[in-house]
């Protein structure tokens, strides 16, 4: 019976392989790249920039399943979103072309990936915290966000973090949300799931009354799914940084210069409009001030 299945599958695969492929969304990044700067200054031999240039591509640690931030279209293989586009633009700045390779990272694997040089940078809603700064260097911040609360549409009684007391709250495993919920509502029961889509599904299926996650991610989820509703403003302030191998001050300064440049030229705002701005109304916010 197994043989029959395999044969059928092969036949089916052979029959389908003539299909055409479309690459939707490719236009957005092209428009951005047309305005993107390329670094023209000196390069210290042996530095991170030198290594990336010699390799010809930027190795990024990030996500494949974060809508509006870094989402892979499994069909076209195209990666879209705010973080994904910044990665392409950074590669363009260093190498002169947007060649990047994405390695999927989780909140648990990011520091090791940087430390052993598997990736050059982490661009993955990576909140700058003092604890993390002991193990990685951060360029930026490049985005300001905070933990927010989402509920199923029509849920009443949850308007602020204190309302979470005694309720079941869904959070992403190993995200800052775990601590944020405990600080805001110590008696809330926390249920963790490994990824954002799983959390959203769990919320919709009633496995918890609220879902606490980064605002940018929740906004993106709510844009895709009408059953979701954000309540109140972010109740923490999180600043995202670009993770760099600990102690590489030269490359950190290099990325900071680039962030300043695209902030001043308005390219940062363009990226925001193409991604998060498609679901958040209003003008692009001012990029956060870069720490020196």
């Amino acid at each position: 019976m197994g043989r029959l299945f395999v044969a059928a599958l092969l036949l089916f695969v052979a029959g389908c392989s003539g299909g055409t492929e479309a690459v939707p969304g490719a236009g957005k990044i092209d428009a951005l790249l047309a305005k993107a700067p390329v670094y023209a200054g000196e390069v210290t031999p042996g530095s991170a920039v030198d290594r990336i240039r010699k390799r010809g591509e930027l190795l990024i640690g990030g996500s494949q399943d974060a809508p509006l931030l870094s989402q892979l279209d499994p069909i076209s293989g195209e990666l879209t979103g705010f973080d994904a586009y910044l990665g392409k633009l950074l590669a363009h700045y260093v190498v002169g072309k947007p060649s990047t390779e994405l390695l999927t990272a989780t909140s648990e694997t990011r520091e090791p990936l940087l430390a052993n040089g598997t990736v050059d940078v982490i661009i993955q809603t990576y909140t700058i915290t003092p604890a993390r700064q002991e193990r990685v260097s951060f360029a930026g911040p490049y985005y300001r966000s905070g933990q927010s609360i989402a509920v199923r549409k029509g849920t009443s009684g949850i308007a602020k973090p204190a309302d979470l007391v005694g309720r079941t709250v869904i959070v992403g495993a190993n995200t800052p949300g775990v601590k944020a919920v405990r600080d805001a509502a110590p008696t809330a029961e926390v249920v963790e799931f490994g990824s954002d889509p799983e959390c959203v599904t769990a919320l919709k299926q009633g496995r918890g009354e609220a879902y606490v996650q980064d605002q940018a991610i929740l906004v993106a989820d709510a844009s895709k799914d009408g059953e979701l509703q954000l309540v109140g403003e972010p109740f923490t302030e999180d600043l995202y940084g670009i993770g760099i191998r600990h102690g590489d001050a030269e490359f950190t300064a290099f990325v900071n210069d680039w962030l300043r440049e695209i902030g001043e030229s308005g390219l940062w705002q363009e990226v925001w409009k193409q991604t998060i701005g498609t679901v958040v109304t209003g003008d692009a916010p001012a990029p956060p001030a870069i720490a020196s």
Partner: peptide, 17 residues
């Protein structure tokens, strides 16, 4: 633990954090 049940392994991981 991967699908949300707080079992021993999941608890260990949370405490470790």
């Amino acid at each position: 633990g991967v699908v949300g049940v707080v079992d021993m392994t999941r608890a260990a991981q949370r405490i470790n954090l």
